[in-house]
Design a protein around this nucleic acid. Structure first.
Lengths: 159, 159
DNA sequence: TATTGTTATACTCTATAACTATA
DNA sequence: TATAGTTATAGAGTATAACAATA
């Protein structure tokens, strides 16, 4: 019964478990799980990003990103300079303190990542990521391939 | 680089894509994606649940569930009666209107579920659900199997 | 004109702690 | 004593719309 409901339920349950574990883990550092995602995105990128670009990367929107950055800026973990070539934009980067915090947080999160990997057989990590990416692509309007109409005619969703 | 970070990122991205699509879809019915989960849980169960049990099912906590139920009750979609055998507990059930709303919402969500399934090859749905369940079990303290220490010694997380 | 970001505003979800009432 | 739920409270993320400055 309830065809197709298993993936949404399993996806939600797994994500919330991860989110809650991360939240608890990062709390003593005064950072939320979502704020960690911002720090990690900036750290992995290695250079400054505009707020718009940052919003895209973390699946959020400019208004939300601003709210998060204000909180991170209060903690001196990020700084927002005027963009060198576009005076409208803001160039967001980690401060030295932010970089240090990110590295501590990354280490703090290690047990969580290890628990997930330990639960999987060799090759399953890659397989899971591949399947999740398929789901993301299927649900993200911008990335919908042109000839995507396969078996079901029941989309009627894209403009 | 950044060993083990792919699953968290892919999981978060996929979940947020699903959540956002669902939110947009259900908005015209005046219901959020999370509220839909409550309705769906009650509908699938077929009988009333206590608030505590409901919280467990939807990966939430009693305080949050109460807030959600108050909103759903204002819309007359659920009702909370005193539990027949435990006077402390509340027995939460869908109203007739709630059941109708749930069925409409289920239909409204069909295209989203279809898009996900269309993106997967035969057998991949089951495989994805199985992998996500493994992740959930690995991250959920209550469900941690006793002899769970496999390859990594870096847990140090469970009490 | 289109785009980047800000501001104001509002709502939902989340969660802790102190509390009441039952078991 | 332990449990179910409420209340108060706070904060974080989310999002829309109107706006300013810049491209």
């Amino acid at each position: 019964m309830s065809t197709g409901s298993e993936i949404p339920i399993a996806l939600r349950t797994a994500y919330l478990a991860l989110h809650r574990r991360s939240e608890a883990r990062f709390a003593e550092y005064g950072v939320t799980a979502d704020q960690f995602v911002v720090l990690a995105t900036l750290a992995r990128e290695g250079h400054a990003l505009t707020q718009r670009e940052l919003a895209r990367r973390i699946s959020s929107d400019p208004s939300t990103v601003r709210a998060m950055l204000v909180l991170l800026e209060e903690q001196k973990l990020v700084e927002r300079c005027t963009h060198p070539t576009d005076a409208r934009a803001r160039s967001v980067a980690l401060t030295t303190k932010g970089m240090r915090a990110y590295r501590r947080l990354w280490t703090a999160g290690e047990p969580i990542r290890a628990q997930m990997l330990d639960a999987l057989a060799p090759g399953e990590e890659k397989r899971l990521v591949r399947l999740l990416t398929k789901i993301t692509d299927a649900l993200t309007p911008e990335r919908v391939p042109v000839g995507a109409a396969t078996s079901s005619e029941s989309q009627g969703d894209q403009p």
